[in-house]
Amino acid sequence: MPTVLLREMQKDQSGTITAVKVGGELGRRIRDMGIVPGTRITIMGRAPLYDPVAIRIMGGTLTLRNTEADYIEVEIA
């Protein structure tokens, strides 16, 4: 299955996180939100200027800036 960056996914597209490729404070914050490899996500929508992106993860909805979404790799379902 193809792997893409979270930023490149379209609305209503689903997949499984394969990697979070950032360290430091930003990496810790992303992982603290539950965005870890093996977690299933769905793109819920985007703001009018495509930033931020809303994702459904573990029954909740989160929004991420595109600069954060650039570090998250997802295997498309």
Rank of each mutant, 00 (worst) to 15 (best):
L26Q: 14
G27R: 12
D32C: 07
T3E: 14
E8C: 04
G27T: 10
R28F: 04
M9G: 06
L5V: 15
I43D: 06
A69L: 14
V22W: 05
I35M: 09
N66V: 13
D70K: 04
T63S: 05
T63L: 13
T67N: 07
G23N: 10
G38N: 12
V36T: 13
L5M: 13
L5F: 14
R31E: 13
A19N: 00
M9R: 00
I17R: 02
Q13R: 01
I57M: 09
T39V: 15
G34T: 03
P37L: 07
G38K: 13
Y71I: 07
M9I: 11
G34H: 06
N66M: 13
L6N: 01
G23V: 03
I17P: 02
Q13I: 05
I72P: 03
V53C: 03
Q10S: 12
S14C: 11
E75D: 10
A19E: 08
A77W: 02
R31H: 14
R40A: 13
L26S: 12
R56V: 13
Y50I: 15
A69S: 10
T18P: 05
T67S: 10
D32V: 10
Q13W: 06
G45F: 06
E73K: 02
L6W: 09
V4F: 07
G24R: 12
L64Y: 03
L26H: 11
G34S: 06
Q10C: 04
T18R: 09
T16P: 06
D32I: 05
I55F: 02
A77V: 14
Y71E: 10
I57E: 06
I57R: 09
R65Y: 15
K21F: 09
P37Q: 08
T67Q: 09
R40N: 15
G38S: 10
R7E: 08
T18M: 05
P52H: 07
Q13L: 03
R7T: 09
P2N: 09
I57L: 14
E8P: 00
M33D: 09
A77G: 15
T42Y: 06
K11V: 08
I17C: 01
Q13G: 04
Y50H: 13
A69P: 03
L49R: 10
P52E: 04
E73G: 04
P52G: 06
L5G: 09
D12M: 13
V74G: 03
R28T: 15
G45K: 08
V74H: 08
G38Y: 04
M9Q: 01
R31T: 08
E75P: 11
R46E: 12
Y71M: 01
D32N: 13
I76E: 07
D51R: 08
I72N: 00
G59M: 02
G38F: 00
G34V: 11
R29D: 15
I41D: 00
M44H: 12
G38H: 00
D32H: 11
M58D: 03
M9K: 00
R46V: 12
I72D: 00
M58E: 13
G34M: 08
L49C: 11
A77E: 09
